[in-house]
Design a protein around this nucleic acid. Structure first.
Lengths: 186, 186
DNA sequence: CTTGATAGTGATTGGCCACTAACTTGGAAG
DNA sequence: CTTCCAAGTTAGTGGCCAATCACTATCAAG
């Protein structure tokens, strides 16, 4: 297998492992095992653990846009927004994709707290890119895009906590009806 | 200083450190240094690192509710929602509070991925508790509460990425006007 | 057959870190 | 003054983990 192909499979494996363990909670050993390769070989393909994480994070964002793009191809405005919402909802099945996003966010914060502000700049560029592409697809206004991403982030959170799809906590999304009486004592 | 008082200061220090480094990225040494105490003494006050993290996480959720409760005391409906939104926005200044939340979410996911589903159950109880108290305060409907939390999660994300308060990416929130032309080429 | 490049492994190491054990200090009660 | 307990420390240990080094295997070109 060529080095380039190996790198590709490393990125895929790393995305899964980092999504579950976070940067510090994931050993290069675990990634290597998932790839089916020895641990030292990772350091031939990438300069270090950080580089593997960065590659996985970038892949994660790219992939998210790919899902949105495919789902909303040829559409615009409300229709595009609905299509992308549905697509994101379907990503709930692929928890690792969603969790890698959150790992990216917290890792960026950690890097910034440690004084590495360039990491923050790179990450913001990536994020704004995704945000603006979605925004343009749904018609261009900030309010709509902001709302779209807001619900997306809540979905991420609820997936992290492990709410099953039929749980009452999902009932406040889009077209769901109210399942219970709002009158309760505190 | 009594053991109980020490425990209190450990929880405060741990919240800050864990917020920045995550569970695995934070050493007990760092927490002890912030408290101003030797590292082994932490293990007299708590059974282990996990317990310190759990205490910090619980504190974080409690504190969040305290902020909401204070801000919206005596109010209800729209007024309560607006007051709590403003309060949460002001929490942006206290990044550690917000980031500890995200760390809690990703840690819960990690625990669940490792097979410890009880952690997930506990966390969901905590979260639902907060959610429902907010929901009742703003009038009881799921849709409103869901929207409230959705924007909250987006705020967390943008704080993690380090967007300054006057950045254009904040312009899609509440009463902000559109600052630029939406017509752009992709 | 040899030469060289590319893919890959095994053994190791130095550093960090959670946690333990054994010791010290200070103050209040009798 | 002594006794005792609670608060706190110093020194250590075993385990994990990123990264390095030296080595092997395969294959294609000359």
């Amino acid at each position: 297998m060529s080095a380039e192909e190996r790198r590709e499979s490393v990125v895929r494996a790393a995305l899964i492992e980092f999504a579950r363990g976070g940067y510090h909670g994931t050993s290069t050993e675990a990634i290597a095992r998932r790839v089916g390769v020895s641990q030292p070989y990772l350091f031939r393909l990438f300069p270090g653990k950080q580089a593997i994480f960065a590659a996985a994070a970038e892949r994660c964002v790219e992939e998210t846009w790919r899902v949105f793009d495919e789902a909303s191809a040829g559409l615009s405005g409300e229709e595009a927004a609905d299509a992308m919402s549905a697509a994101y909802m379907s990503l709930v099945e692929d928890r690792d994709q969603l969790m890698m996003q959150m790992q990216l966010y917290v890792s960026v914060f950690a890097a910034r707290a440690a004084g590495e502000e360039e990491v923050g700049e790179t990450a913001r560029r990536l994020w704004e890119n995704l945000f603006d592409r979605v925004r343009i697809r749904i018609g261009g206004d900030m309010k709509g895009a902001t709302q779209f991403f807001a619900y997306g982030m809540l979905i991420n959170t609820m997936v992290a906590l492990g709410y099953p799809p039929d749980h009452r906590m999902w009932s406040g999304f889009d077209g769901c009806e109210e399942p219970e009486e709002p009158e309760e004592s505190e």
